[in-house]
Amino acid sequence: MQVLIRPWGAMHYFCDGAEDGPCVVFANSLGTDLRLWDPVMPLLPRGLRTIRYDKRGHGLSDTGPDAPITLDDLAQDAIALIEATAGGRPVVFVGLSIGGLIGQAVAAARPDLLHALILSNTAAKLGTAESWQARIAAVQAQGLAGIADAVMERWFAPDFRATPTLAPWRNMMIRTPAAGYIAACAALAGADQTQASAALRLPVLVIAGGADGASPPDVVRATADLIPGALWHLIPDAGHLPCVETPEDWAAAVAAFLQEHAR
């Protein structure tokens, strides 16, 4: 187990690959842990140093004190991880959903730390404060199991939901600590990177899923259009987690970008 001690507790992470290879940091979505990336790891270019982590309140990381957190707090955790693990080298940051918002915040706060940014199934702003407060209220009233089926409908296309492969991902979501899930929802309620992301000046790849019910492709495309020079890639049949549902298609797009921009 690899652990980075933060002011709020222990943050679990996992480094793999060549010690001196180009560093790629992966930030996962709400209600998932670093295993989100397992399906695509074997499909990425060889020679990379991959760094995956569980954001606070998820996976094997501590939840931290019962206090509000912001997107900036989550970005500071990612910045600390990069500084601790990348050996002073800039990284490519890959973020999905809330992980993509974290990546945008890191790029805005510390552009010196990033070579490039990959944003998957995310946007400069996701949902509204009211929608996230409603999600928090639902979790408080029903628990994560009570909202799981609705979340799976937003995460995955119907064909995937009809397979036994759905079960582990549903289990991962409902086994997330409720306090950690709620804290991340509260951070999303206040997150808006619109102005900051419009000012980004680094290579960016933006990926969307045509069947994504959590971050619809038009919302994702609007963020791609916001960032000067950003590349756009749509996976027509994928839902919110294309690295799970269509790993070969997702990895092909990411690999091509990494071949050009990971150094």
Rank of each mutant, 00 (worst) to 15 (best):
E153I: 15
L144G: 14
A262P: 03
S97E: 00
Y181K: 07
P42K: 04
A157K: 01
H261R: 10
S197E: 05
I5W: 13
C243N: 14
F93E: 04
L113Y: 09
C15W: 14
N28A: 10
C185I: 08
T122K: 01
V244A: 02
R170V: 12
R135K: 00
V25M: 14
R175F: 14
K55Q: 13
A150E: 12
Q76C: 02
D237V: 12
E19N: 06
G17E: 00
E260L: 10
C243I: 11
L74I: 09
L43G: 07
A137N: 11
D192N: 15
Q142L: 15
T194Y: 08
A67H: 05
P45W: 09
A162V: 02
S120F: 05
A238Q: 05
L74D: 03
P217N: 12
T163M: 04
G57D: 01
D218S: 15
L96M: 07
A189R: 07
L231I: 09
D66I: 03
I235C: 00
G209Q: 03
A109I: 01
A84D: 05
V139S: 09
P65N: 04
A238P: 03
V40Q: 13
F14T: 10
P242V: 02
G21K: 06
R89I: 04
P90M: 14
A157G: 08
Q2L: 12
R110Q: 15
P203A: 11
L60P: 07
P242L: 01
K125A: 15
R56A: 08
L226Q: 06
A162M: 01
L202Q: 10
M41P: 09
Y181E: 06
D33T: 02
M1Y: 06
M172Q: 13
D73E: 10
A187E: 11
T128S: 15
C15Y: 10
R52S: 07
G180E: 00
A129V: 13
A145F: 10
Q193Y: 04
L119H: 05
A27G: 01
C185K: 07
A67Q: 10
A105R: 08
H115D: 14
A224Q: 15
V40E: 08
L117E: 03
P216N: 05
L258D: 11
T246F: 15
H240W: 07
A116F: 08
G47H: 05
L44M: 02
I174K: 11
R170K: 15
F160G: 02
G213N: 05
M152Y: 04
A86E: 14
T32Q: 06
A262Y: 03
Q2S: 14
Y13V: 02
A10P: 02
R35H: 15
H12A: 08
G9R: 11
P216S: 04
A196E: 11
A84F: 05
D72V: 03
G64T: 12
T63G: 11
A109Q: 04
R6G: 00
T122C: 06
A252C: 06
R46K: 13
G88T: 00
P247C: 09
P158Q: 05
G210I: 05
Q193L: 06
P42H: 02
W250V: 13
K125H: 12
A214N: 06
S29R: 07
A150H: 11
L144A: 12
G31N: 03
A145P: 01
L4Y: 05
H261M: 13
T163C: 04
T122P: 10
A238I: 06
A145G: 08
A162Q: 01
I51E: 03
A67N: 00
A191K: 01
G21S: 04
A78I: 00
A167L: 14
I207Q: 10
